[in-house]
Every structure is written in C-alpha cells, then in structure tokens.
Simulated assay, not measured.
Amino acid sequence: MKKITNPFINIFILLLVLNSCSPKSETKNPAYVKLQIVKTEKDFEKLVAEKGPAEGFYQFADSNAVIKREHDTLIIGKTNIRNYYSNPRYQNVTVTWSPDAVTVSDAGDMASSYGKYVWTSKDSSGKLQVSKGVFHTVWKRQKDRTWKYIWD
C-alpha cells in the first residue's frame, strides 16, 4: 500500500499544533485588557478636564455611540453627543470618575466598566451644584486597537 503525503496537509497540521501551543495574545488576556480599560477611563477623564465634556465625550466615542441622559433620553452618534455637551450649561463643569470594576469579553474586543462619578457645576446664581452617581460604560476595541465607548 502506497502512503500518500500532501505537504499542504502537513503544513496545516503543524500550524494548528503551533497555534494551540502559543500563549494567549495580550489583546485577549483579560488582565491586560482590564488595565487598558482603566487607562482609557483615566485618559478620557483627563481630556474632559482639559478640553471639556463636548470634546472629551466626542473623542472617546465610537461613531455609533449612544449615551443615556436625563429623562431616559438617548443621544445617538458621536456628533450628536458633541452637540449635546456643547450646550452652555456644560461649559463650566467638572466631572471625575473611577471604575470600580471592569469585565472583558472572551474575545477581548469588548469590555464594560462601572464605578462612581462626581459631577460639579454652578447654577445661574453661582451656587455650586454637586451630583454623584454610578456610571456604566461599554467599550469596543477599534481597528486601530484603541478603545471607544459604545454606551455610556
């Protein structure tokens, strides 16, 4: 009986074996992704502090991002989010936040974070108004490997 050997099958089997033996890539490692999300949250917070909510929420939004705000209003799309935060009432505000927990998808391309925020503004009489709450953000890895929120 003649043994039939196809070099392509041998290469395919070798590649399968090598792939199964390789360590999990960093982009799928949950601990690594969690660190990326925490860093992204801090970079997001810093940009909002430096350039205001309109620019910060715009820069970190996926093109199809959605934010839910007062009275369960949904603002859809990063341009609409920028327009929402361009309202004069958001010009002199500060907001700080920090994630308490981050969850990562098995594929490593989606994550969610939640934690506490403090929103500070002045009313029309100049009196300081402080609002505290809990945020929940859903993140999506972009083709350029950055993270943008799709829900906030």
Rank of each mutant, 00 (worst) to 15 (best):
M1T: 12
M1K: 13
K3T: 08
I4K: 10
I4T: 04
T5S: 08
T5P: 00
P7C: 01
I9H: 06
I9R: 08
I11F: 11
F12N: 00
I13C: 04
I13R: 07
L14A: 10
L15E: 02
L15I: 14
S20E: 03
C21A: 09
S22C: 06
K24Q: 15
E26K: 10
T27C: 11
T27A: 13
T27M: 14
P30C: 05
P30M: 03
A31S: 10
Y32P: 01
Y32K: 06
Y32T: 03
L35I: 01
L35D: 14
Q36W: 09
Q36V: 00
I37K: 09
V38I: 10
E41Q: 13
K42D: 07
K42C: 04
E45I: 10
E45L: 04
K46E: 06
L47T: 09
V48T: 12
A49K: 12
E50Y: 08
K51D: 02
G52N: 09
P53R: 13
A54T: 14
A54G: 04
A54I: 14
A54D: 04
E55V: 11
E55I: 13
E55P: 02
G56Q: 01
Y58D: 00
Y58M: 01
Y58P: 00
F60I: 01
A61G: 05
S63A: 14
N64T: 13
A65G: 11
V66Y: 02
I67A: 05
I67K: 08
K68N: 08
R69F: 12
E70F: 14
H71N: 09
H71P: 00
H71F: 12
D72Q: 10
D72C: 03
D72H: 11
D72P: 02
T73L: 14
G77R: 07
G77Y: 05
K78F: 03
K78N: 08
Y84R: 05
N87S: 13
P88G: 05
P88A: 11
R89N: 06
R89P: 00
Y90D: 03
Y90S: 05
Q91H: 13
Q91S: 12
N92E: 13
T94G: 12
T94I: 08
V95I: 15
V95S: 03
T96A: 08
W97F: 15
S98N: 07
V102Q: 10
T103G: 07
V104T: 05
S105Q: 01
D106N: 12
A107F: 11
G108K: 01
D109T: 09
M110A: 12
A111R: 03
S112K: 05
S112V: 05
S113P: 03
G115V: 14
G115R: 10
G115M: 07
Y117G: 04
V118H: 11
V118T: 15
V118C: 10
T120D: 02
T120P: 05
S121T: 13
K122R: 07
K122H: 08
K122G: 01
G126H: 06
K127A: 12
K127M: 07
K127T: 15
V130R: 15
S131C: 06
S131N: 13
G133F: 04
G133N: 09
G133S: 09
F135L: 03
T137P: 00
W139F: 02
K140R: 15
K143Q: 10
D144Q: 08
R145N: 13
R145Y: 12
T146Q: 15
T146R: 15
W147Y: 06
K148S: 11
I150P: 03
W151D: 07
W151H: 09
D152A: 15
